[in-house]
Write a protein that binds this DNA or RNA. Structure first.
Lengths: 156, 156
DNA sequence: CCTTGACCTCAAGTGAACTTCAACTTACAG
DNA sequence: CTGTAAGTTGAAGTTCACTTGAGGTCAAGG
């Protein structure tokens, strides 16, 4: 007999906005877990929704799934995490966000001065400073946020 | 034009900080071009350095190479681009940057209020608002679910 | 002439975060 | 009991921006 009402993967997907395939993927990566029915189907505890919320939010902030897994590993083992547990983890994002905003603002200022001269000179322009590159956005294009940048890139 | 000193791919790589393999890749994607020697080696015009600077900077701002190619396509055909040409293109980045910064700031504010409660609640938390999410990641995760997670009141 | 280092092409690999596919199996309403 | 929606697996595919590797050529100095 099932006292607690567990959630199927479809229910979790609907309520979290995360596709079933992504949930399976998260499980594979050790981010979430599930019970199984006799017929091998996943059944999620309700607290998993909060865990997924954490993962999605951290992901939006630009953390990799590995980093998120690390953060989740600091949660208490035996018991269901409390609000304070989640608070503790979330607080760490604050600094990260501040940093990223600062990097973008610096980039914007540099851009302003470069628009002034139109140079994009490799020798002089701050925009071309390789040191900044590491700090900027990590590898590859991370569009953290949505813009359909197509209206800037031109075309269509 | 015969007097112009052309640059080898290695020289361009050193001066631009972009790896030779990346330069070949950019060429393949139509972002830059080069003359060839009798022995089929690339020789770059000096103005190519500025073009590469543009590509790298736009890339740092989060534009895809396709979008950058579109932008470059608006440069005048016949002549070497002037400082004003580059200025015109760069100006369009300004708005993009502003937008991105604004989004991150909003996210930070939301985070602040969420840290207050530690909830990360799917029902209440702005951070979990699916509308934001659609805008969040551009290409990539596609959810086929059209449901809003606002069903079932009581919750956890 | 010979060696060495820079260069060439094309194909395949990388990594992040998923999605899609094929080929089943399970859960449950009627 | 049966039809079917929803679930299962593992492998492979996707996108982006490159890098790496194999196998070969070119340019320049001694």
């Amino acid at each position: 007999m099932i006292l607690e009402r567990y959630l199927t993967i479809g229910e979790v997907a609907r309520r979290s906005g995360v596709a079933p395939s992504a949930l399976r993927f998260y499980e594979q990566r050790g981010l979430i877990e599930a019970q199984r029915t006799g017929g091998n189907q996943r059944r999620y505890e309700r607290t998993t929704l909060r865990r997924i919320a954490f993962v999605r939010t951290a992901s939006r902030l630009g953390l990799t799934l590995d980093q998120i897994a690390d953060a989740l590993a600091t949660l208490p083992d035996g018991r269901t995490p409390t609000a304070e547990d989640w608070r503790r983890l979330s607080r760490r994002w604050r600094g990260l966000l501040d940093e990223r905003i600062a990097v973008l603002e610096r980039l914007r200022d540099d851009l302003d001065s470069c628009i002034g001269c139109g140079c994009l000179s490799l020798e002089r322009c701050t925009l071309q400073n390789p040191e900044d590159r590491a700090a900027a956005l990590g590898p590859g294009p991370r569009y953290l946020e949505g813009d359909s940048p197509s209206d800037v890139g031109g075309g269509t």
